[in-house]
Design a binder for these strands. Structure first.
Length: 290
DNA sequence: CGCGCCTCCTGTGTGC
DNA sequence: TGCACACAGGAGGCGC
């Protein structure tokens, strides 16, 4: 569930609570929580001890914490990851994976992850931009994101528009929830072929992506359950503002038609059957238009 | 190389 | 009541 608005909410919380502090000790409670780190979790803990966290950065759904060594801690929340700032006296969470204690005491930083799709890594010399995420496109809230470049790349793809929105190498930060919400705002069905979108239509879609992400950031992200919370353990409120996601059968806020749910990549897509008509499937040769 | 599907995980909800 | 299974889904990796 954590998409750009949720990760940005976590980033802001971390910037407030851990930037400028020096790591004292690191405990790894679950080896799978440490990713891309061949020397193992012991070494992971050793290289972090004594390092000062300079900042908290984000690209798309990835976070990284530049260190005074020039390395960085790279973090991805996956499906259920949480970064919590807790007093040392707080009881351990059932799915506590990693704990960072600081030289100045409370609060400590905990990585908690029920489904272990997320993880932490040390990115060597990754303070500027970890090489592990060099393939991740800039996200639409990045000042250097190129709208024209995105539109050109989108229209050059031979795929469906929702698949393209979820492709983090094209545009990062968008997941299933905000893809559905942006497509609804743009009145586009997710199965629309990207190479048949006009330039203005693609630009409009991008504007709606940015709009829905910005609104969700303003409400602290979307929480359906306790799996997404900010660094203080609090839920976001954007679920109340969702127009289609998770609202099968409820009236479309624009036209009143019941929202439909369709299978998509072993999960679900939500849309309005009237506002977002499904495109006619492409039949290269069978060509009768009806 | 581009595209699309599979897999990794576990708690929750549902149907028999 | 209890078991079985679908479902949630980000992203790396692999097959075509």
């Amino acid at each position: 569930m954590p998409e750009l608005p949720e990760v940005e909410t976590v980033r802001a919380g971390l910037a407030r609570w851990v930037a400028g502090r020096t790591i004292a000790t690191v405990e790894v409670h679950h080896p799978r929580a440490i990713r891309r780190h061949l020397p193992g979790s012991m070494h992971f803990a050793a290289v972090l001890a004594g390092r000062k966290i300079l900042d908290v950065c984000r690209r798309g759904k990835y976070l990284w914490l530049p260190l005074d060594s020039g390395d960085a801690i790279l973090a991805h929340l996956g499906m259920s990851g949480q970064l919590l700032c807790q007093p040392a006296s707080a009881p351990d969470e059932p799915h506590l994976r990693v704990r960072l204690r600081f030289t100045d005491g409370d609060p400590e930083l905990r990585f908690v992850d029920q489904r272990t799709f997320g993880g932490l890594a040390v990115s060597e010399a990754g303070a500027d931009l970890p090489h592990e995420i060099a393939h991740i496109a800039r996200d639409p809230m990045d000042p250097l994101f190129s709208d024209a470049g995105f539109v050109a790349a989108l229209r050059a793809r031979h795929t469906e528009v929702k698949r393209a929105l979820l492709d983090q190498s094209l545009i990062s930060g968008v997941g299933n929830i905000y893809a559905d919400e942006a497509l609804w705002r743009a009145r586009l069905h997710g199965a629309r072929p990207t190479d048949r979108l006009t330039g203005p239509a693609a630009l409009r879609l991008l504007a709606y992506v940015r709009e829905v992400l910005a609104e969700a950031i303003g409400q602290g992200g979307t929480s359906f359950d306790a799996l997404y919370v900010n660094v203080n353990g609090e839920s976001g409120y954007f679920d109340r503002s969702l127009s289609v996601y998770g609202r099968e059968g409820e009236p479309c806020p624009r036209c009143g038609n019941p929202i439909r749910r369709e299978p998509f990549m072993n999960r679900s897509s939500y849309s309005c059957p009237r506002c977002q008509p499904r495109p006619r499937t492409r039949r290269p040769q069978a060509a009768s238009a009806g």
